[in-house]
């Protein structure tokens, strides 16, 4: 009796999964904060993303469990990567590549190493991992992304990883229950100001099941904002005030430490 029931249930679920793709899992995420304020005592911050893998009665259970890939992309800027070489005894920049519209911050956070989550092919297609992010280079008039082995590209990623601006972490995502996860996004103190996009991918058995996006912003606040805004919007006034501040400090010192 029970055996027959199970068989019927299995057939029904299989049928439901095949006929209605809407019955697959979907993602619900929530961010601990949508605005990071860089104030004078800012020393980096950890942002937390909570997420849940939602499923309905018709969803088939996954034997291999779920994988989560969180990709955080910071504001884009144009970078130049230079290579030094010894010329006439001294080290000077000889060669360079321009990286157009490249993220200033990039974090790939997963629950286990990316090579265990999906095959190389899938990773390349879904841009999973630092190696498969698109970092288009300008060489002369051509703009193209290059192979992950490109020396300039590797150096660019390596230097950014050293500064914690690019990160790949295989244990930043933890599953609290089989369906509930938590991702820690570590933002270093040197995090650039701007809008950040978060892309959350749900994978199972090496294939993409669901995807959702979110965003947050990093802004200068308080005193930092006033100083930076004045410097950029009223440069002459800012320079004048700074110079006057210097003269005042010098004058104060000569008064305070006067010995005659």
């Amino acid at each position: 009796m029970i055996r027959r029931l199970t068989a019927i249930l299995a057939v029904v679920t299989a049928f439901a999964a095949a006929s209605a793709p809407a019955a697959a899992e979907w993602l619900v995420t929530s961010l601990s904060k949508h605005r990071i304020q860089v104030t004078s005592n800012f020393g980096g911050e950890d942002l937390v993303l909570f997420g849940s893998v939602e499923r309905d009665a018709a969803t088939i259970p996954r034997r291999g469990g779920y994988d989560i890939v969180v990709t955080v992309t910071g504001p884009r800027k144009t970078f130049v990567t230079r290579r030094k070489e010894r010329r006439l005894g001294i080290w000077i920049n000889v060669d360079s590549r321009e990286f157009d519209g490249t993220p200033t911050f990039l974090a790939v956070l997963t629950n286990r190493p990316v090579d265990q989550i999906a095959s190389e092919d899938v990773r390349r297609r879904l841009k999973i991992g630092l190696d498969y992010q698109s970092l288009p280079q300008q060489n002369g008039a051509n703009v193209a992304d290059v192979v992950p082995e490109d020396a300039f590209r590797k150096a660019f990623i390596r230097i950014n990883v050293q500064h914690q601006l690019y990160q790949e972490s295989a244990n930043a995502v933890t599953f609290l229950t089989p369906n509930l996860f938590r991702a820690a996004i570590p933002l270093p103190a040197s995090v650039p100001v701007g809008t950040y996009a978060i892309d959350v991918k749900l994978l199972a058995d090496g294939a993409l099941i669901a995807r959702t996006t979110s965003a947050f912003e990093v802004i200068k606040a308080g005193f930092e904002q006033i100083v930076a805004d004045t410097a950029h919007q009223q440069p002459f006034l800012y320079g004048l005030i700074t110079a006057l501040m210097a003269l005042l400090t010098g004058w104060l010192a000569s008064v305070v430490f006067r010995r005659d």
């Binding site: 800027k77 970078f79 130049v80 990567t81 230079r82 030094k84 321009e98 660019f156 390596r158």
Partner: peptide, 15 residues
């Protein structure tokens, strides 16, 4: 600094 081999010959900078 100019003569000794740098630890990393590559450097990056925002344009």
């Amino acid at each position: 600094q100019l003569v000794v081999t740098p630890s990393d010959p590559y450097s990056i900078r925002v344009v």
